[in-house]
Computed example of a mutant assay.
Amino acid sequence: MAYQNLISEIKENILYITINREKALNALNKDTLIELADVVVFAGKTDEVRGVIITGAGEKAFVAGADIKEFSDYNGKQGEELAKKGQDAVFNAIEKSSKPFIAAVNGFALGGGLELAMACHMRVAADHAKLGLPEVTLGLIPGYGGTQRLTQLVGKGKAIELITTASMITAIDAKKIGLVNYAVPQADLISKAKEILDLVKQRAPLAIAAAIKSVNASIDNGNGYDTEIEEFGKCFETADFKEGVAAFIDKRKAVFFGK
């Protein structure tokens, strides 16, 4: 996969995506969003990929926001379309992917950068990283799901505080409020994300996908219990279920094939 703004490679069933615009602090411009949309589709349809790690080039920024110059003269309709396209093609697509995505936050995660990290299923941050949604300083609000996902992760009161004050918080504080799963030294960032996915890779792929779908349903449709029941039943029809039970009875390690 050859991209202009991304570096992507698969190693040991993990797809590593690096947003490669270091001089622009990895800001999300239109071309980068198009490429992200493409690689998310690739991850979803490629059996070799069991999980995804997204990070930014360098140590200064994961993604320091969107490329403001590209939409500085937009009107209301254009702004709405910008948000809708981005949410549908990238941010929601990541959240709804059957493959687990981990954001490895290696520096500033601001605006669209924090929204990208929050769209991922898990977040690991370097302990020097800073996170925030500064859109109100531009006369805007978060447009790529930030108001919704931040509220889901940290609660209404804290979300409103962070959004309306435009305050940045450290990775350590982000961990305390549940915004990131782990805060680790920069040198350990990718290895920690890999450590999580190495555990995921040992589990049944179809069950992983069913679990992600069920968790998302708790927010998306207001009745995640029905989705959980349905997905639980579907698991019984898989070869992975039969293998998992047989391995448990035989006291051996299960070998899953996602079937």
Results as ranks from 00 to 15, higher is better:
234 K>F: 13
152 Q>P: 08
199 L>G: 11
222 G>D: 01
216 N>H: 15
42 F>Q: 06
152 Q>L: 08
202 Q>L: 12
148 Q>M: 14
90 V>H: 00
35 E>L: 02
122 M>Y: 07
81 E>N: 11
178 G>W: 01
33 L>F: 11
162 L>K: 00
134 P>T: 05
103 A>W: 03
38 D>W: 01
215 V>K: 15
166 A>F: 06
181 N>C: 06
62 F>V: 08
245 V>E: 09
111 G>V: 03
218 S>Q: 10
27 A>E: 08
58 G>D: 08
91 F>S: 00
3 Y>W: 13
72 S>T: 02
226 D>N: 15
140 L>P: 14
232 F>R: 14
196 I>E: 12
256 F>I: 12
170 T>N: 10
10 I>A: 05
195 E>S: 09
96 K>C: 09
252 R>L: 04
123 R>K: 04
230 E>I: 09
11 K>L: 13
135 E>K: 06
84 K>V: 07
167 S>I: 14
58 G>C: 00
177 I>S: 05
257 F>R: 15
96 K>Q: 04
26 N>D: 14
249 I>N: 15
36 L>P: 15
126 A>T: 03
112 G>P: 03
17 I>R: 06
244 G>H: 04
175 K>L: 10
89 A>G: 09
100 P>W: 10
104 A>P: 09
197 L>I: 12
157 G>M: 12
237 E>Q: 05
108 F>D: 05
224 G>Y: 13
77 K>Q: 06
76 G>I: 02
24 A>R: 15
235 C>E: 06
212 I>G: 00
25 L>P: 10
96 K>M: 05
227 T>F: 07
73 D>G: 01
240 D>M: 04
182 Y>T: 01
203 R>G: 11
74 Y>N: 01
250 D>A: 11
229 I>V: 13
92 N>S: 03
23 K>H: 15
145 G>M: 06
112 G>Q: 09
198 D>H: 13
104 A>M: 10
37 A>S: 12
171 A>W: 08
244 G>D: 05
155 G>V: 14
49 V>H: 00
216 N>G: 14
129 A>E: 02
80 E>L: 09
